[in-house]
Amino acid sequence: MRKPELAAAVADQTGLSKDKASEIVNAFIDQVSAAAARGEDVSLIGFGTFNIRARDARSGRNPQTGATIQIPASKTVGFKAGKALKDALR
């Protein structure tokens, strides 16, 4: 499911227009992104938790040349599914 399909599903379920549902989906994404940029976790009970994970610097290998390269430390966003979401998959 892509963002337009999600907005259409939200519109169908709530009775909102597709444009209004799209605004809501965009606002949700903006708020999760802003919280991640501040280093905050976002917990949605039953759905899951978005959290910031740190990756240490490490050495890697260029597959074309075989040369060893240094990969710098970085941050990434992780997601851990909640119980209700896991149960829905069964």
Rank of each mutant, 00 (worst) to 15 (best):
T65K: 01
V10R: 00
A35Q: 00
G15E: 02
S17G: 15
A27N: 13
Q70A: 14
A11P: 09
D41Y: 00
D30G: 11
A7E: 01
T49F: 05
K18A: 11
L85Q: 05
D41V: 00
T49K: 11
K20C: 03
F28M: 14
S59L: 08
Q13I: 13
E40L: 03
M1L: 13
L6Q: 00
K75D: 06
A34M: 02
M1R: 13
E5M: 12
T68P: 02
D87P: 00
K3H: 11
F47A: 05
E40A: 13
A7D: 02
E40Q: 06
I29Q: 03
A54C: 13
R53N: 11
K80L: 06
L85N: 01
T65Y: 04
D41H: 00
G60S: 12
D19A: 14
V77R: 04
A35C: 10
I29M: 09
Q13C: 08
P63S: 13
I52Q: 04
G39N: 00
K83F: 11
A36I: 11
V10I: 10
S43N: 11
D87S: 11
I69M: 06
I45S: 15
A11F: 01
A81F: 04
S22G: 15
K3I: 12
P72T: 07
A81Q: 05
V42N: 01
D87E: 11
A57Q: 12
K20Y: 07
D56L: 15
Q31Y: 01
Q13T: 10
A84D: 06
M1N: 14
K75M: 11
D87M: 07
E40C: 03
S74Q: 10
R61T: 15
P4F: 09
E5C: 14
T68I: 13
T68R: 06
D87L: 06
V77G: 07
V25A: 09
Q31T: 10
